[in-house]
Simulated assay, not measured.
Amino acid sequence: MTRASQRDLVAEYFAGFRASDHERILATLTDDVEWVIHGHRTTRGLLRRPSAWRVSTA
């Protein structure tokens, strides 16, 4: 994947996030993505398949 396409992918993810468009966000992720959101409370998740999220908080 080129740098330009990586930037486009991240831009698309954030555009979906700003619009609260879950389908748009999921379209940018692979089935095995793991994510961590740091903040007041750390949130972690594992995408098992595009239609289901498993979320845990630490």
Score class of each variant (00 low, 15 high):
48 R>A: 15
26 L>R: 08
51 S>D: 14
18 R>V: 01
24 R>I: 10
32 D>K: 15
11 A>F: 07
55 V>A: 01
54 R>S: 05
1 M>T: 12
10 V>T: 08
53 W>M: 10
24 R>D: 03
28 T>S: 00
25 I>D: 10
11 A>Q: 06
46 L>S: 14
3 R>W: 09
19 A>S: 06
9 L>H: 06
33 V>G: 00
17 F>V: 05
24 R>G: 10
34 E>I: 08
38 H>M: 09
16 G>M: 00
22 H>W: 03
5 S>T: 04
41 R>K: 13
33 V>R: 02
47 L>I: 06
8 D>K: 13
58 A>K: 13
39 G>W: 00
17 F>G: 01
53 W>I: 13
19 A>M: 03
9 L>Q: 05
13 Y>W: 06
4 A>H: 13
20 S>K: 03
14 F>H: 09
55 V>P: 00
25 I>N: 11
17 F>W: 09
51 S>F: 12
11 A>E: 10
56 S>A: 12
6 Q>N: 04
31 D>V: 08
49 R>N: 01
37 I>Y: 08
51 S>A: 15
17 F>P: 01
50 P>M: 07
11 A>K: 04
19 A>R: 11
17 F>K: 06
38 H>Y: 09
34 E>K: 13
37 I>W: 09
3 R>C: 03
36 V>D: 11
9 L>I: 02
41 R>D: 03
13 Y>F: 07
47 L>V: 08
48 R>E: 08
56 S>P: 04
19 A>Q: 02
